[in-house]
Nucleic acid binder design. Structure first.
Lengths: 127, 127
DNA sequence: TCGGTTTTGACAATCATTATCATTAAGGGC
DNA sequence: GCCCTTAATGATAATGATTGTCAAAACCGA
C-alpha cells in the first residue's frame, strides 16, 4: 500500500511552487535551504513517483533530468537552440493526433513519442 | 584548423549507416566489433562535433545522449516497437510543415527536428 | 497501542560523460 | 617527400547525476 509521508508532500509542494523545470538536485538543495532534512535519494524517488503517476513532466537536459508539476493537459514539446540551448515550449496538438493516428494505422498500441525541433534562435541566427 | 582523420570519418559513417538513434557507447562498441581501435573519448568528441555542425541530431533519453545522422536526403521518421525493436519508416509531411511553421513563428532558423514514435507493435501488444 | 510493511536516508556503487596530458599524425610550406 | 607546428587521439582518472543497499524509522489498519 502506498503511504503518505511529509517528505513526499514536501517534494510535491516544492515542485508546484517552482517556476519552470527543476532538477532533483536543485529541488533537494532548495528544500535543505528551508531547513528540511529530507534526503537526496528520497527526492529522487518522490520525483520518479510523481512522474509515473502523471503528476509531473520530466525531460532530460545536459545530462540531468528536470521536472515540472503537470496538470494533466499540459503535454508539450520543445524548440531548442542548437547554439545557446534556449528552449521554448511549444504546443503540438496537431502532432499528438498525428502520432496516435500513425501508430494506430500500423497496429501499434501504447504509443508515445519524441518530438523536438532544433534550430538557431533569433540571437544565434546568422545575418 | 580542423583536420580530417579516419576516426572522424569512421564515426560519421557508422552514424549514417545506423538505423534510428544510437548512443555514443553503442557506436563505440559497434566500431570495435568491426575491428576499429577507435577510442571512446574520440567517439564522444566526433559526435559532439557532428551535432554542432548540424550533421547530426541529438537528444537525451534514459540518462544518455543519443544521436542520429541528419542529411536532407535521408530524412524520414520511425515507428519503433519498444519491446522487439521492429522499426517502420513513416512519412511525416504534416509534421515537416508543422515543424517549419513552429520554428519560424518563434524566430528560429535552420530548423530540423526529431520525431519518432514508440509503442508496441501488433505482435507485442497485450491482449 | 501493536505489528507488518513501506519508506527513509546515509553511503556505496554505477554509469555516462568530460578532463588530463603525453603521444601521434594532419597538412601547409619548403 | 620532409619538417614543423599544432590539432587530434586515446588511456585513464575525475566528475557528477542517479540508483542500489539495508538497517532504522514511520505509517496506518486492526
Amino acid at each position: 500500500m502506498k503511504r503518505n509521508t511529509w517528505q513526499r508532500e514536501a517534494v510535491r509542494e516544492a515542485l508546484e511552487t517552482s517556476e519552470g523545470f527543476v532538477s532533483a538536485q536543485a529541488l533537494h538543495s532548495g528544500l535543505h535551504a528551508t531547513g528540511s532534512p529530507i534526503g537526496l535519494a528520497t527526492v529522487y524517488r518522490a520525483l520518479a513517483d510523481l512522474a509515473s503517476e502523471g503528476e509531473a513532466d520530466s525531460l532530460q537536459q545536459d545530462g540531468e533530468s528536470i521536472y515540472r508539476a503537470c496538470t494533466p493537459n499540459t503535454h508539450h514539446h520543445h524548440l531548442i537552440c542548437r547554439n545557446c540551448g534556449l528552449t521554448v515550449e511549444i504546443e503540438a496538438d496537431e502532432v499528438e493526433t498525428w502520432a496516435q493516428k500513425v501508430a494506430a494505422q500500423n497496429g501499434f498500441t501504447q504509443a508515445n513519442h519524441i518530438v523536438d525541433v532544433f534550430g538557431l534562435c533569433t540571437s544565434c541566427s546568422p545575418g
